[in-house]
Structures are given as C-alpha cells and as structure tokens.
C-alpha cells in the first residue's frame, strides 16, 4: 500500500486523522502503524495530526499517579535512585512548601475563631485541624475530644464538592501512605466517624488532607483527585 502517492493524499489524511483521534478500527490501526514505520512521508502526516490534536489535551487538569510508577521506572531502568532524586510524593511536597505558613495560619485562625465565637474553649476539646487550600484560606475546621470517636467538621464559606463529586478526608502518617478517614458529608457542621478514639486514631498523624473524589469516594483507596486542603493536627493535651 503506497499511501504517500499524491493521488492517495486525501485517503492518507483521513486515515492519519482517525488514527490520531483514536477512532481508526483496530486492524486498520495496526496496518497504518506498520506503513508509517517504513514510509517517512506517511509518518509525517500522522505526526502532524497528533500535534494538531494534542493541543486539545494541554489544558486537561492533571492527576498525580501513585509513587509506585516512579519506583517502577527507576527499578526497570536500573537507575541510581539517589541521583535520579525520587520525586517527592504530593503530600511530602505540600509538607515542604507550606508547612510553616499553614501552621502559623492554623494557630492564628484557631485563636481568631475562639475570640470571635466568644465561647470558652472546652477543656476537653483537645484536637484541632484547620484545613486550608493553597491560598491559605481555611475551608474546613475539624475538632475532637481526645476520647471522642468522631471528628466534628465545620465547612467555612461555601466549601462543597459540587455535583457528582465528594470530599474525602485523609490521614497522612509520617512517611506512610495516606489513609482514608472517610467522606465529608455536605452541610455546615457534620461528623466524620473515627475507628478509634481521636487520641488513638490520630496518633502518629501530623497532617490531614482533603481530596476531590468521584461520588462515593476514591475507587483506589488512595487519593485520585486534586488535593484541595491540608491541615496540621494540633493537639492541646
């Protein structure tokens, strides 16, 4: 099949376009791949179409893959994992670039909240987490007594997941994978149940995070959507 002949140009354009779009049926797809390997002119037309269409993908929001992928690449290529500087996972990255700012802000917000509400902080109210977005504006405040088996979560402003989506709360253990604490129900003040009393359930957990997930929560058991908010677990006991 000599597709690069001038009189076949129109047909080649059509095949290349559908190949790049992905609608070329499987057999034709395999045939075109073979022809493109041998015929540079055909490969060029295919590449033009790929470039035209790739423009469309550029604004697609990203989703961070599991750290498994990078580990697999390093292992498969036999790279020196120190020199290849294993990428920080998203929660480590967050920890690095925001830790200080967020802690300072969390404390300030808790103080402000206490003053504004003009209510004495109950002596048993011992765990406070202020979850903020990249703009450092608090979106959710979670509190618990140390012996309590739930987090009371208060949404601030118009914080909500939107239709067909859910906000999922994660515990980020030091050096471990995120553990889901469950979905945050819609509403101003809600409860997220804990498997154990807060003191135990949050032991060894310096940070919580909230990611945007499909309705019903992450299908993989790990965050799949963007991380919207993070907050440090402040213990007052």
């Amino acid at each position: 099949m000599n597709l690069s002949r001038p009189d076949r140009r129109e047909r080649l354009e059509r095949l290349a376009a559908e190949y790049a779009l992905g609608t070329l049926p499987s057999r034709a797809r395999m045939r075109l791949t073979d022809v493109a390997k041998r015929d540079a002119a055909v490969a060029g037309v295919v590449a033009d179409w790929e470039r035209r269409l790739a423009v469309l993908a550029e604004a697609m929001p990203g989703i961070n893959p599991s750290p498994r992928v990078w580990r697999g690449i390093v292992a498969q290529l036999g790279l020196d994992s120190d020199r290849a500087a294993a990428p920080l996972s998203w929660w480590e990255r967050l920890a690095v670039w925001r830790a200080l700012a967020v802690v300072a802000f969390a404390v300030a917000v808790v103080l402000a909240m206490v003053q504004l509400s003009r209510e004495p902080v109950a002596p048993t109210q011992a765990v406070v987490i202020v979850l903020a977005g990249p703009d450092a504006k608090p979106a959710l405040i979670a509190t618990a007594d140390r012996g309590q088996r739930f987090l009371a979560v208060r949404a601030i402003g118009g914080t909500s997941a939107g239709a067909g989506k859910a906000l999922e709360l994660w515990a980020l253990p030091d050096g471990g994978k995120p553990k889901s604490l469950g979905l945050i129900p819609a509403g101003g003040l809600t409860r997220v149940p804990l498997a154990a009393p807060a003191e135990t359930a949050l032991a060894g957990i310096p940070t919580l995070a909230v990611s945007l997930e499909p309705a019903g929560g992450s299908p993989t058991g790990q965050p799949t959507g963007p991380v919207l908010y993070t907050g440090k677990v402040e213990r007052f006991y």
Partner: peptide, 30 residues
Amino acid sequence: QRAFGDFYRQTSAHLYAVAVRILRDAQAAE
C-alpha cells in the same frame, strides 16, 4: 538522572490524567 526526575515530576500528572480518562483503569494507566 536528575533531569529525568524533574521531567517526570513536571509531566506525569498530565500524562496520567490522559491515560486514566481513556483507559478508566488505574493499574493499566500506571
């Protein structure tokens, strides 16, 4: 190798999103 790590950091979320949308299968996408 360091440049390779940087390149991965700056591109993997975009490419993973492309793959996962088409495949609808996290493991195959990985």
